[in-house]
């Protein structure tokens, strides 16, 4: 058939329609259909640290978990609340420095530094970004993008926290398993909790702000306050990733404000499927091992993943997870016009 005489038709699978309502629990087939993708994600991530060869790859997984958390946080803010916050490195830096300083100077244990770093850091990030919340779109993005540079240059200029040398050693996790499983469990928790949150009433208000903030204002809702809630949730996730990096690498320094922590999560989000929350996490767990594999190629690695990123945005803007979801729920065939 010549191309212009045909088109692709997509139809929902019968089982998809059945599992939307109460039918979902009518048989094991339906339940399996619903649970299989979720179970695959959970089991895959839980098994991964045990099957990868050696310590090096376990560390890579831990770092992938950090990128996954940042990607989730970015995706939640950008696609579910409409705040394009590209200051991932700032959250990492603030979280990391807080727990690093507490551990290095005051010798506090991990059980204390991590929660303080996470929630204290989130509080600081939220308060610092609070004045920027009325800004829209690219302006909010540019301001948040500048924050890691500002923080980095202040630390550099003032020679704070031993300046360029950084703080080392920072107490690490008792062993690698604790670290890796801590972050994997938290990634899974964040994915499911945020997806749930977005379906709740406040999640609808978030979506409303993204779609049309004026209408939300006219609905007697203080949008700045609601955005603060969302920002706090996202920065808690990001700052936890920061404290994790500090303890996982045993070092706190200017590298925490590195642009990698901003770029990689965005790349993971674009690749995994913007707006799905699970997609960015999956994307991060695919992209960061991939970039480790390419480490031998030096700078070619960066070039390659930039090209991957551009390719995805141009040719598959929906991302992997959205594509996979469609294939899972629908079948396609060619029909004659």
């Amino acid at each position: 058939m010549p191309a212009e005489d045909r088109r692709k038709e997509r139809l929902d699978r019968g089982i998809k329609a059945r599992t939307e309502g109460l039918y979902a629990i009518s048989s094991w087939r339906e339940i399996t259909y619903l649970l299989a993708p979720r179970a695959a994600l959970v089991l895959g991530l839980l098994i991964a640290p045990a099957v990868v060869p050696g310590l090096y790859w376990q560390r890579v997984l831990g770092l992938a978990g950090v990128y996954a958390l940042l990607a989730i946080s970015f995706d939640f803010l950008a696609e579910r609340v409409g705040l394009v916050c590209i200051g991932g490195a700032f959250m990492i830096g603030v979280g990391g420095y807080i727990s690093g300083v507490l551990n290095y100077y005051f010798h506090l244990p991990l059980a204390l530094t991590i929660p303080v770093g996470t929630f204290g850091g989130a509080l600081i990030c939220t308060l610092l970004w609070l004045p920027c919340l009325p800004l829209r779109g690219i302006y909010f993005a540019v301001v948040t993008f500048m924050f890691p540079f500002l923080a980095g240059s202040i630390i550099l200029a003032g020679g704070l926290f031993r300046g360029t040398e950084g703080l080392s050693p920072i107490a690490g996790f008792p062993n690698i398993w604790v670290g890796v499983y801590l972050i994997i469990v938290l990634v899974l928790f964040a994915v499911f909790a945020l997806r749930r949150l977005c379906g709740e009433d406040i999640g609808l208000v978030f979506a409303g702000i993204k779609d049309n903030d004026q209408a939300v204002l006219a609905s007697a809702i203080n949008i700045t306050r609601v955005k603060v809630y969302a920002l706090f949730i996202a920065t808690v996730i990001g700052c936890f990733a920061g404290t994790f990096v500090a303890h996982f690498s045993g070092f706190v320094g200017l590298s925490l404000f590195a642009i990698d922590f901003t770029i990689m999560p965005i790349a993971a989000c674009v690749m995994g499927g913007p707006g799905t929350i699970a997609g960015p996490a999956v994307g991060a767990f695919m992209l960061s091992p991939l970039s480790e594999l390419l480490r031998g190629f030096g700078q070619l690695r960066v070039v390659l993943y930039c090209l991957v990123l551009v390719g995805f945005i141009l040719y598959k803007p929906e991302g992997l997870l959205n594509w996979a979801t469609r294939r899972y729920h629908q079948f396609e065939h060619w029909v004659k016009l």
């Binding site: 394009v84 993005a141 965005i266 930039c306 990123l309 945005i313």
Partner: peptide, 18 residues
């Protein structure tokens, strides 16, 4: 806007690191 920023920045990174 987001895609514009990401794409052009990715090109920049590719060129500079290249």
């Amino acid at each position: 806007p987001i895609s514009e920023i990401i794409v052009s920045f990715a090109i920049a990174l590719a060129i500079l690191e290249g």
